[in-house]
């Protein structure tokens, strides 16, 4: 498997640490970048897209976050999706199981899947396999 870059958008520090550990436990050649909310993630992506760095292969996006939540990030991401030089696999990764959230996520066609927390090795391995 080739080198895979992952962008995590998550405000909870414990979840961030545990996600790192789960990804590490998968023994894949991965690189994880962590941002604390939707705005930080957008800033990171726009810097990446300026051409100096490489866009991530996977985005793991939480929904409930301060400053700019997951939905706000998706709205902004959609506006700029055509300008990105590479296709990014975006997964919503949330503790919500509300049908309303699941339905709303379907409105964003570029969202690859709606994953309920916690993330485990199996879920990460599946993401890497279908990349």
């Amino acid at each position: 498997m080739e080198h895979v870059s992952i962008l995590l958008v998550e405000d909870d520090p414990i979840t961030t640490i545990l996600t790192k550990k789960v990804i590490t436990a998968c023994n894949a050649d991965t690189e994880l970048v962590c941002t604390k909310n939707g705005q930080e993630a957008l800033d990171y992506l726009s810097a990446q897209n300026a051409g100096t760095l490489i866009l991530p292969d996977i985005i793991l996006l939480d929904l409930n976050m301060p400053v700019l939540d997951g939905w706000g990030f998706l709205d902004n991401f959609r506006k700029h999706i055509n300008t990105y030089t590479k296709k990014v696999a975006l997964y919503i990764c949330t503790s919500s199981t509300a049908p309303r959230d699941i339905m709303k996520a379907r409105e964003y066609q570029f969202v690859k899947d709606f994953i309920t927390k916690p993330l485990n090795q199996q879920k990460i391995t599946d993401m890497l396999r279908v990349l």
Binding site: D12, I14, T15, L18, K21, V22, A25, N64, S95, S96, T97, A98, T116, K117, P118, L119, N120, Q121
Partner: peptide, 21 residues
């Protein structure tokens, strides 16, 4: 029930992850 689903699932999920790891 929504509060339980949203607000307890997060930390409980983390506990599950910790135990698995």
């Amino acid at each position: 029930s929504n509060i339980i689903a949203h607000n307890l699932r997060g930390p409980l999920g983390n506990i599950t992850s910790i135990v698995d790891l």
